[in-house]
């Protein structure tokens, strides 16, 4: 059963966060170990397997980018895994330039401005993905997801850079 089905949701990119939360919390209550303490061992075991799968489904679908990557996989668009490299010059030049800019940023305000651009870019990409998924344009989905992967990594690095700058100020 895929993660969407496990939560009783349609396999789609645009899932409302509160709908997802509600589906998860309802099912989590249903399979909560406390409700199975007095049940036979096989039922207890089943409940704990269900609860673990449920948690994994929720973790995968909660973040929009992670959800998009998972949905793409379901549609047969797998991104390169560990140890697999890409050599798309346009995409990588963009990622390299952005990371250089971040490295050179010397104030929290600069880092925040860069992080804001990245976040807007990421959000725009997620909107673009909606259209690509409905057109089932696999090449475009793959390329956009790779780009968003790098933007997401950039956002993570920006947070780390910001923390370093904050710390050195003190």
């Amino acid at each position: 059963m895929d993660h969407f089905a496990r939560l009783g949701l349609p396999a789609a990119l645009d899932i409302d966060a509160s709908t997802l939360d509600r589906a998860y919390f309802d099912l989590q209550r249903k399979w909560h170990p406390d409700r199975f303490v007095s049940k036979p061992p096989e039922e207890r075991a089943r409940a704990s397997v269900e609860a673990a799968s449920l948690n994994e489904a929720y973790r995968t679908l909660k973040e929009p980018l992670s959800r998009a990557i998972y949905l793409a996989e379901l549609k047969g668009v797998a991104l390169p895994g560990d140890g697999k490299t890409i050599d798309d010059p346009e995409l990588l030049t963009e990622a390299m330039d952005a990371r250089e800019e971040l490295q050179e940023a010397s104030s929290v305000a600069e880092v925040d401005a860069l992080a804001r651009f990245a976040r807007e870019d990421l959000e725009k990409g997620l909107v673009d993905l909606l259209r690509m998924f409905s057109a089932n344009d696999k090449a475009a989905i793959r390329r956009t997801l790779l780009r968003l992967r790098y933007l997401d990594k950039f956002a993570e690095e920006a947070r780390a850079r910001r923390m370093n700058l904050e710390r050195s100020k003190r």
Binding site: K84, T85, R99, Y150
Partner: peptide, 10 residues
Amino acid sequence: LVGAPACGDV
């Protein structure tokens, strides 16, 4: 110029 998208390295 190469990248590993799984970890975001470039």
